[in-house]
Nucleic acid binder design. Structure first.
Length: 464
RNA sequence: UCCCGGGUAGCUCAGUCGGUAGAGCAGGUGACUGUUAAUCACCCUGUCGGGGGUUCGAAUCCCUCCCCGGGAGCCA
């Protein structure tokens, strides 16, 4: 039995002199009319291709090997040998090349040359076969592992919060409705759709956040986290928004806002360090071709503690700048992108934590501060990305929570289970949400969020 | 949703004053070479985003719709 190798392992171990097998897809074929051809093979295991020498002595050389083009799937057996030429340490002298799947070069969309990301988005099913999307895919997968590793090391328990839910995490955005009703014949009462006849007997939707459910589990398990898909039916058309994205939401009992920020900072650093240390080959690609300032920017994240300022100080800082912002700066109004960017990229030139926002611009569940004006909220801003984390200490006091909900026009009966958490054994607790795609954007330097998720869903677009 | 900028060959783009469409790459053929974004020669490729209008004549001007990109809002 000939040992099978993934190309990344083959190039790392260099088992020369022995017969081995690899599978993969052809990136290029170059013919040397001296009677042999070079094939570049990639199998997705890494950025580097394997160079294969196909000699005309192969029984199918003339009728098959010479017809191989970019995109063909092949199974190859041969002997790994040191390469006599520059460009690669070892190469595979093929003794057998079987073409498993052809790719007609007249219609196969991927060429040897570089394609634009815009074009690759139109062929989302084929783009993982390119260097940059392949690298994104490997980093994304590795980062997903790092997420679980981080929380596992700290004793957090993963909780699978529901994807279909009836609790709208107010302030997070519009929900998609999940229904099994016949859309051509909707049952109505009083002119409105009667969701009482729907599958769940009431209106349900796709979750916009697992936070409320995570709170329930934090107040039983201590420290928990969720990591799953999240849906927003917002008409957001930007390079930082998706209608379907993945979010990580830790929730900790007996933890205040400072502890919440500590965890978020350690988490971001863990993810950045993971990519730098464990995805070096792919990371180098982005530092070289996508954003040359990337390595420096990431190392600065690891360099020291994140500065923390209150919203009130941030507003003062903006006033002090004397800048003429498109949106006026005034205490009580939310910080705009231009304000956040100025603070993050010009004043602090690095990550920044902003805390204690006015309660009027924040959702009901955030804990009221003693000043009566602000809540224990925090946002973490990263240069170039903006808001990567939003979190808060939650309001654990039943009466104050009820007041906030009533003030924001919420029906307390709808949130009975959530209020129960404050009725029985309520405890201080805090948490945050981190957008998975945004951290991938940050560590890769990819400019458009649609290029860091396999099949992006955005307004007007959900194909593949 | 709003503000800009775009949509021309398979891909990336050029196209002057309104005069009837071009380059590079890819693809095909051949030459050459332990090649590696290979090189050289020749060849092939078009609903100029859709619809309507102005004009003798529209890729070019006008209207409209669609799509894409950048920015903003909303947020993660």
């Amino acid at each position: 039995m000939v040992p099978f190798y993934r190309i990344a392992a083959l190039l790392a171990e260099k088992p020369t002199g022995m017969e081995i097998a690899v599978n993969g897809w052809v990136r290029t074929r170059r013919d040397a009319k001296g009677g042999f051809s070079f094939l570049e093979i990639n199998d997705g295991s890494g950025l580097a291709n394997l160079q294969v020498i196909a000699d005309e002595a192969l029984p199918n050389y003339h009728d098959e090997v010479l017809r191989i083009t970019t995109g063909c799937a092949v199974r190859i057996t041969g002997v790994a040998v040191p390469s006599p030429a520059k460009g690669q340490e070892i190469e595979l002298k093929a003794s057998r090349i079987a073409v498993e799947g052809w790719a007609d070069p007249l219609v196969y969309p991927l060429q040897k040359k570089r394609h634009s990301y815009e074009f690759l988005r139109t062929i989302a099913h084929l783009r993982p076969r390119t260097n940059s999307l392949g690298a994104v895919t490997r980093i994304r997968g590795s980062l997903s592992f790092a997420v679980h590793q981080f929380f596992h090391q700290r004793g957090f328990i993963q909780v699978h919060t529901p994807i279909i839910t009836t609790s709208d995490c107010e302030g997070a955005g519009e929900m998609f409705t999940a229904t099994s009703l016949d859309l051509d014949r909707l049952p109505t009462t009083g002119g409105k759709t009667d969701f009482g006849q729907d599958f769940f007997g009431r209106r349900a939707g796709l979750t916009v956040s697992g936070q409320l459910e995570a709170e329930a589990y934090a107040l039983a398990m201590g420290n928990v986290y969720t990591f799953g898909p999240t849906f927003r039916a917002e008409n957001s058309n930007t390079s930082r928004h998706l209608a379907e994205f993945w979010m990580i939401e830790p929730e900790m009992a007996f933890c205040d806002l400072a502890g919440d920020i500590d965890l978020a900072e350690a988490f971001i650093k863990h993810l950045v360090r993971h990519v730098v240390e464990n995805c070096a080959e792919d990371f180098a690609l982005f530092g070289r071709f996508v954003d040359t300032t990337l390595p420096d920017r990431l190392h600065r994240i690891l360099a020291g503690p994140f500065p923390r300022i209150s919203y009130t100080v941030a507003v003062a800082e903006l006033h002090k700048s004397g800048r003429d912002f498109a949106f006026p700066v005034q205490w009580g109004a939310d910080l705009q992108s231009e304000h956040e960017r100025y603070l993050c990229e010009e004043v602090f030139d690095g990550p920044l934590v902003v805390t204690d926002y006015p309660k009027t611009i924040k959702p009901f569940y955030m804990r009221a501060n003693d000043d009566g004006k602000t809540v224990a909220a925090m946002d973490i801003l990263l240069p170039g990305i903006g808001e990567i984390v939003g979190g808060s200490q939650r309001e654990e006091r039943l009466d104050l929570l009820g007041e906030r909900m009533t003030a924001q026009g919420l029906d307390l009966d709808e949130y009975g289970w959530y209020l129960d958490l404050r009725r029985y054994g309520s405890a201080q607790h805090s948490g945050f949400g981190l957008g998975f795609e945004r951290i991938i954007q940050f560590v890769t330097g990819m400019g458009n969020i649609r290029d860091v998720i396999p099949f992006p869903r955005t307004p007007g677009s959900a194909s593949g």
